[in-house]
Nucleic acid binder design. Structure first.
Length: 424
RNA sequence: GGAGAGGUGGCAGAGUGGUCGAAUGCACCGGUCUUGAAAACCGGCAUAGGUUUGUAGCCUAUCCAGGGUUCGAAUCCCUGCCUCUCCGCCA
């Protein structure tokens, strides 16, 4: 959520920046609602003030043993006027709040203009794209005889799920172990186990609700519970309605969870591959920082995600998302795209974003500044480190041999009982 | 799932209809004392919104949340959520 003060004081600038993200703000609607709000709120508060004064008089008169009936008569009509004004104010404020909650975050000044992924800016590349002396297969072909089974998953559940078996399943697990260990033991994140079922308040806090409910799996329980689309939701909501002390900063958490996305709509080829699944594993890093540290934290966290790709020897590039491709709550996002020889393309494997105070304001996540003694909104930064399924795909395709076997990257071997190669 | 108890400021814990935003203690901050520290003593110490040039003042709201009763609710009533105790079930 944006700062309401900012909208009141700098409506034109806000509208201009929202346009970069492709959002058209109705300035007149906002100004109109806002001026009505102001008038009504003033009215309600002064009516309440009067009532409080009169009520106090009644109390005093009663205590003094005086006749309070005249005072009661004087106050009799106050209630109705107050009530109707309160009702009007409530509905107006709800309308304003909905408008505000529906506004995306403002893009950082370093975000390039543009309307879709074609306008994203490539910042750097790492690693050498390997030339194969044979025709490289994609992971579907490679996995067919090694335990990557989409048909059985379709029988058990439906499309866009997968069953992994044997060494592929082991490598999938090895990847999560390696990533978790790296981020917790080397990069300073506290490993955290979290619920993968969350309530609506948590999803509102991180911004998935109210706008993106169709992307979520909602449970058929008597409460409003959902499966998480990312561990960002439970990890960030640890801080909801909290005021933490300065010595608890920086707040750095990492978790490994399954993620669930309903992904309504078709993405063609992706659906038949292990690229866009309804259920997938992800390692998620979340940081909460004081405002002045968040941009440095984004660079740092992106580096942590890159470190995994580098340790695995997977070529990738870093992309600065343009305004139109930026997510709802992000002020800036770096996508890491890994090279997939089977597709001859770079594909997203991590997304690292700074939300500034956007999420923190929604969930009232604050820290107490010892210099002022006052609570201040935190800035939240998060990113995948990495999406495990897609990493498995990338390893398979980049480490394939002519005979269809897959060499196990050095750093994973300890996690796989020393296996060096997954045979065809 | 059944029965009962309870949710008050950073923490502990008073407060059952009337200047209660809330006693007291601890913690924290400032001061006195001290060579320094501790102790003791004095003072301060919630959050949000509005108004305003204003971190001043004033106003409003907030004692888990949402409704209700009342001139007036931390206090009474209803609903929800959460916690605890006992029983049942269970990986």
């Amino acid at each position: 959520m944006l700062d309401p003060q900012l909208l009141r004081n700098s409506l034109d600038e806000v509208a201009e920046k929202l346009l970069i993200k492709g959002y058209q703000l109705d300035k007149n609607e906002f100004s109109e609602l806002e001026s009505q709000r102001k008038a009504l709120q003033l009215q309600v508060e002064s009516l309440r003030g009067n009532r409080n004064i009169e009520s106090r008089k009644i109390g005093l008169a009663k205590a003094a043993g005086e006749d309070i009936q005249p005072l009661l008569d004087a106050v009799a009509s106050m209630g109705n006027e107050l009530k109707s004004s309160e009702i009007a104010l409530d509905s107006l404020q709800e309308e304003l709040h909905e408008l505000l909650a529906g506004l995306p975050n403002l893009p950082h000044e370093s975000v390039p203009a543009g309307k879709d992924e074609n306008d994203n800016i490539e910042l750097r590349r790492w690693g050498e794209v390997k030339e194969f002396s044979f025709e490289a297969q994609d992971h579907v072909g490679l996995g067919a005889f090694k335990g990557m089974d989409f048909e059985t998953a379709a029988k058990i559940t439906g499309s866009r799920y997968v069953v992994l078996e044997g060494e592929l399943a082991a490598m999938h697990r090895a990847l999560t172990q390696f990533m978790l260990d790296t981020h917790s033991r080397k990069n300073g994140y506290t490993e955290t186990y979290v619920p993968v079922i969350v309530n609506a308040d948590s999803l509102r806090g991180t911004g998935q609700l109210p706008k993106f409910e169709e992307d979520l799996f909602k449970l058929n329980t008597e409460h409003d519970n959902y499966l998480i689309p990312t561990a960002e939701v439970p990890l960030t909501n640890i801080l909801r309605d909290e005021i933490i002390s300065a010595d608890q900063l920086p707040f750095k958490r990492v978790a490994h969870t399954p993620c669930f996305r309903s992904e309504a709509g078709s993405y063609g080829r992706d659906a038949r591959e292990m690229i866009r699944q309804h259920q997938f594993e992800k390692i998620e890093m979340v940081q909460a920082r004081r405002a002045e540290d968040s941009w440095q934290a984004l660079e740092e966290l992106t580096g942590h995600a890159e470190g995994i790709l580098q340790a695995l020897g997977l070529p990738y590039r870093v992309v600065n998302l343009c305004g139109g491709d930026l997510g709802f709550g992000a002020a800036k996002t770096y996508d890491l795209e890994v090279w997939l020889p089977g597709q001859q393309a770079y594909r997203e494997i991590s997304s690292c974003s700074n939300f500034e105070s956007f999420q923190a304001r929604r969930m009232q996540a604050r820290w107490r500044n010892p210099e002022t003694g006052k609570p201040e909104l935190l800035h939240t930064v998060n990113g995948s480190g990495l999406a495990v399924g897609r990493t498995l795909v990338a390893v398979m395709e980049n480490y394939q041999q002519e005979d269809g076997s897959i060499v196990v990257p050095e750093v994973l071997r300890n996690y796989m009982g020393g296996v060096e190669k997954i045979l065809a």
